[in-house]
Amino acid sequence: MSDTTTTGGFAGDPAAALNVAGTSGCCGNPPRATITLPETVSAGPCCGTAAEAEQAGACCGTAAKAEAVASGTGCCG
């Protein structure tokens, strides 16, 4: 088996998995039916801004976290 006979594995740089959105936060994935190839973005809180999270002393700003739950995108789990 070789690269020419399988489509598995990472299409890009596997190290990107160390730097996906929300890695430093605790909030959950948006509910979704299927996994699609995501765009990789820099690490940061999954809700709101890094400044709001820092001000709240938590993974995400309080209001942003509440918004995430209210909109059904969840927070933690």
């Binding site: 088996m1 598995g8 594995g9 936060g25 605790c26 959950g28 994935n29 190839l37 995501p38 990789t40």
Partner: peptide
Amino acid sequence: PAHALLAVLDQAGRHTGVPLAAGPVAS
């Protein structure tokens, strides 16, 4: 410190034909 683990995961994905993509797994 998951660089080595990612390397074998990538290799396993290739061997088993499972495509992988960096993306949030909030768990």
